[in-house]
Design a protein around this nucleic acid. Sequence first.
RNA 1: UCGUAUAUAUUCG
Length: 247
Amino acid sequence: TFTQNIVIHCLVKVGRYGEAIELFNSMREKRTICPPDVVTYTSIMYSYSVCGQAENCKVVFDMMVAEGVRPNIVSYNALLGAYASHGMHKEALETFKLLKQNGLRPDIVSYTSLLNAYGRSAQPEKAREVFNEMRKNACKPNKVSYNALIDAYGSAGMLKEAISLLHEMERDGIQPDVVSISTLLTACGRCRQLTKIDTILAAAKSRGIELNTVAYNSGIGSYLSLGDYEKALELYALMRTCNVKPD
RNA sequence: UCGUAUAUAUUCG
């Protein structure tokens, strides 16, 4: 079972989902030799999540329960992640409640996924509530949690709040990273505040955060989305100067 | 890091 799980994991990572499911089904058929365990089911749930098939992710989750394997926190988190990626906050919240009903404690991944579900459905205030609840339950938000909340505000047009989280995280002892910066650069375009791009680039520089390709793309994309081609080209030139590869 | 699974950024059809 352990060996097969590793193979399934590899197949999923390289995008050979059909073969992963084939192997999964063969394990279920010959249950006496290598029966699927909680990791097997969860890996398959994850593969459906990656394919954007939240419904099938839930089907496998139910299948696991029906076949006598207890979902653990990672299984619930995989389902939460599938819902979150589609902004399906209602289903995500139900899953979150269900996990607690089954005696499991939400961990940082659970909270961050639920937060993200609200962020993706344009409900930054609900995302903030989840963030606060996380702390109340002695679950310290990390870099990923902060970045997800920054994106929740940025996607909702609340650039001020997004930027102030940069300072809030530092006060909390957490260093912003290139994802934080990239998220904010994207937010500048969505919030139509291109003048903040320079502010954010300066903030990155002063913290020693090196921008990568995605981060430059974010900034250039923000300029382009509002038609500021001059600034877009300028940023592209900076990217070349810094030896960051365009894609 | 200590044999396998889960959460955050650019592309908006």
